[in-house]
Amino acid sequence: MTVAHLIAVPPFVVAGPAPRDFWSRGQAAVEFTVVIPFHNPGASLRPTVERLAETLYAQNISFEMIAVSGGSIDGSEHSLADLPWIRVINDPDVRDKGAALQTGAAAAQGAWVGVVDVDGDAEVDPYELIECLHRARENEAALV
């Protein structure tokens, strides 16, 4: 099972939409932001990011990705440098995974925010993350 969560910002809650006026721009330019906090993930980072992007493109989901180093020293962020769909944040003040998550969520522009743990031993299943998005959309529609 993948460690993937769908959250809203702010505050962090499971499976809820972000307030539409959070960014003071009306509707979000992208529907879905995938935040990838990482700490020394090694060679697994790029293939995971590529699989996620391919699956999101195939599902026709408007998305952005934000990878944030949480004190990573293995240089793995350099493997993402040539990927145009991802922003990499490598701030020396971000010293752990929790701070990386907060930094990524603060930079998110999507109406929905998903978090993927690339540091764990479990394989990341992109369809599980997308399924969380679909369920969240359905729950929001049921509330309206």
Rank of each mutant, 00 (worst) to 15 (best):
Q109D: 13
V30T: 11
N40V: 07
G42I: 02
S24K: 08
H5L: 06
D91N: 07
E138N: 10
I86R: 02
G42W: 01
D21C: 12
F12N: 10
E64G: 01
P11E: 15
D96L: 10
R51P: 07
G98I: 14
G70Q: 07
D125T: 12
R25Q: 15
A142C: 06
C132D: 12
I61T: 15
S62W: 00
I36P: 04
G110H: 00
A18N: 14
R137M: 04
A100G: 00
H5Q: 06
V115N: 02
P41I: 06
A141D: 13
V116D: 00
L56Y: 04
N90Q: 11
A122M: 02
A141K: 15
D117G: 05
H5W: 11
R135L: 15
N60H: 10
P47V: 01
A136Y: 05
R46V: 06
Q59K: 15
L80T: 02
L143T: 11
R20V: 11
W85D: 01
P37Y: 09
L83G: 00
A107R: 13
E31L: 09
A43K: 10
W23I: 12
W85A: 06
H78C: 14
N40F: 05
A136L: 08
I73A: 07
R46L: 07
Q27C: 04
A106E: 04
K97G: 15
F12V: 13
P126F: 02
E123C: 04
Q102T: 01
T48K: 13
V14T: 02
N60Q: 11
T48C: 10
D74M: 11
T33V: 03
L133W: 04
L101N: 05
A28E: 13
E140C: 10
